[in-house]
Design a protein around this nucleic acid. Structure first.
Lengths: 400, 400
DNA sequence: CTGTTAGCGCTTTCAC
DNA sequence: GTGAAAGCGCTAACAG
């Protein structure tokens, strides 16, 4: 019996004590675990922390899952009749149906989706590929997508590409091996070859991109109005009196980056501000780089008086750097992010940010996929553009 | 052609403009989209935002996925030989193997995992049921679990029970219908009937609990040392001179809650402090309730001078409430959380918290499952206890 | 209304 | 070395 956890030792004890978990006082009859600080659990609770007794373990596990053949045999009818009864088909004797349903219930029958999928050539599983799900963004999109898909009888299989192109390709491959019925994809920041996806699209595999969409593929897409959101955010900064506005942008490979950057530039232009190339930096969205570029911007001979960041994690990193240097926000420096990550409400001052309807993005992507699934070749791909909303907080309002 | 997004209108334009996306200047030849603020995209970019032309769309999609029969036919050999070649079995002519592998490559053959699963009675999919994945906690556990499982050739199918018992039961059912090879489970806060899981355990379905474990089931488990972590956190508060220490606890249904609470109580006792029942409140982990109870505690005739919270979201809510009332942290009130959510480093003052090795928890749970998968009935369940670490920040250190 | 038959894509004896 | 045949659990004609 090996142990990998942080445990040190274990032995049997017999002692009158109070169990720290359930408060029961009595004789400790089971293995207790000794750690730096000694604790004695009651029988029940000790069992949770000690290796199980393997007592009642059925040696030859009755691993068998009930099948329709079992039901048929039991009822003395054919398996096709069982199948029909189970799927509520018209031509079936009510009595038979009732009997089947009842037995299925009793024997805890669960249809084997693999067998079902094999004959129907569909898995009822949707694959999803996201770059990461550490942050606020993707988990919330996933939640929305799952809501819609679940309701439609689909399961979600989620893979994270970890912002790696190779992993993304591998993920897609794995999902296709599982014969997912469709794919929800948000590209990595380094994906510029989309042959792995183009091949699927060509083959007719339903494909929906969201957020990190693929410009070269004629598939449905869900995005927020990044351009508009960025434009509005920068316009807000200008309205607040900031003039030397920098932009910490994402990698140009992402359309999102390009659109937000263009929104930034156009907003400056619209208000007669000359863009300064020194104030626009594209980076790879890693925390370390965010810190470095924030430092860099603040070290400039003529530092910016405001920074519009590609997203909230970036903006927050900027704020932390600024604060650590004694740069006052928003007096010396305004900061605006993108996403309305909960952190933006927590940090002080609050971070002004462009909110995106995340679960709605997931829901929309899922709906688009379902539509495509049912419409088949008649489906005409389209792009859904969701609205953003500027959330103004202290980081961009002087004297607030 | 219907539109659901926030779009208003669309029409065709012909104009010399600069595309806001790619900067290309030229004649706009494609559908542009008019919004509140007008924008004209270049041909390429416009395509992203306009409904696709459905031009090159192959009407009768060659949806067919290559099978081993295709390969066999093409090579004039039997499908069994192809099967053997594909899975690198011994008795096969090197030349045949090479030919098969090459053709498979060319025809982009992907084994059908459903068919494979059907004959092997295994899906190579692991199911996971988590209460939520909005917060920091579960996504990070998932990442760790996925890392290990992926490497072992398994896919993860994740369901969220949304802290609802019924949903949890439904999730487990769905996953079992997909014939997942094993289950990674973290219970909802309201699950006190575990028959749905006991049935699986009895049937020999590999089952690992993590974090929100099930005390009544003799399965492998992964937890952090909640008792110890809580004890240490409260001991720290005492060392800092706080004496009237409250505890905002989780629902007693969760062992995690009970253990942390006991750690709290024992730490008080160990330092000769009398626990005050008014200062211990169990709640359901919803934000609204956190706020209410935080208010309640601060409204007490004799309010606490410190609060140990069941987790970081709770602690942060407490801090927000305190700050909004002008209660100074840590002078008037110390706060300690549990989890080391990134927010705890962002909020001011920084939140002292008990860090848990999240991805490690996922990895350990996955490893335990894999072990069980390969050991079968010989597997002896055990509980892995991971270490916590107290991260001391400003919220609990006076004059810091 | 129900049973029979074939087959989804793959692995696996068992022959040759 | 390779092929033929059976079968995983289920659905879907096609007969009765």
């Amino acid at each position: 019996m090996t142990r990998q956890g942080g445990l040190s030792n274990e032995f049997y004890i017999l002692l009158m004590v109070k169990c720290p978990t359930c408060q029961e006082v009595g004789t400790v009859t089971k293995a207790g675990i000794v750690r730096g600080r000694q604790r004695y659990f009651c029988k029940l609770c000790a069992a949770h922390f000690a290796p199980g007794p393997a007592e009642g373990k059925p040696k030859s596990a009755p691993r068998h899952q009930t099948t329709i053949v079992d039901l048929a045999r039991e009822l003395g009818i054919s398996k096709s009749t069982v199948s029909r009864a189970l799927r509520d088909q018209p031509d079936i004797h009510p009595g038979t149906r009732r009997a089947v349903l009842e037995l299925a219930q009793n024997l805890d029958y669960q249809p084997n989706l693999m067998a079902y999928g094999l004959v129907k050539s569909r898995s009822n599983v949707i694959g999803m590929v996201v770059p990461e799900f550490y942050h606020y963004f993707f988990p919330n999109v996933i939640v929305g997508a799952q809501e819609v898909l679940q309701r439609a009888g689909y399961n979600l299989m989620i893979c994270q590409s970890a912002e790696s192109y190779e992993t993304e390709v591998a993920n897609v491959k794995t999902l296709m091996a599982s014969r997912v019925d469709g794919l929800l994809v948000s590209l990595t920041a380094q994906t510029n070859n989309v042959e792995h996806l183009r091949a699927l699209a060509r083959r007719g595999v339903p494909l929906v991109f969201f957020n990190r969409i693929c410009p070269d593929l004629d598939t449905p897409r869900v995005v927020v109005d990044d351009y508009e959101g960025a434009f509005g955010a920068v316009e807000h900064l200008i309205a607040q009196g900031y003039r030397r506005i920098a932009h910490l942008a994402g990698p140009p490979a992402l359309l999102v980056s390009r659109l937000r950057q263009q929104g930034y530039l156009d907003a400056l232009a619209a208000h007669g501000l000359q863009p300064d190339p020194d104030l626009v930096i594209s980076y790879d969205l890693t925390v370390e780089k965010a810190r470095i570029y924030a430092q860099h911007l603040l070290n400039l001979p003529q530092p910016p008086d405001a920074i519009f960041a590609i997203n909230d994690p970036t903006a927050i990193e900027i704020m932390l750097v600024a604060k650590s240097r004694g740069v006052r926000i928003p007096d010396d420096l305004a900061v605006v992010g993108f996403s309305n990550d909960p952190m933006s409400a927590i940090i002080e001052p609050g971070l002004t940010t462009v909110a995106q309807p995340l679960p709605e993005m997931g829901r929309t992507a899922a709906r688009l996929l379902l539509e495509q699934l049912s419409a088949g070749d008649d489906f005409v791909p389209r792009t859904e553009v969701l609205k953003t909303e500027l959330i103004v907080r202290g980081s961009s309002v002087r004297g607030a």
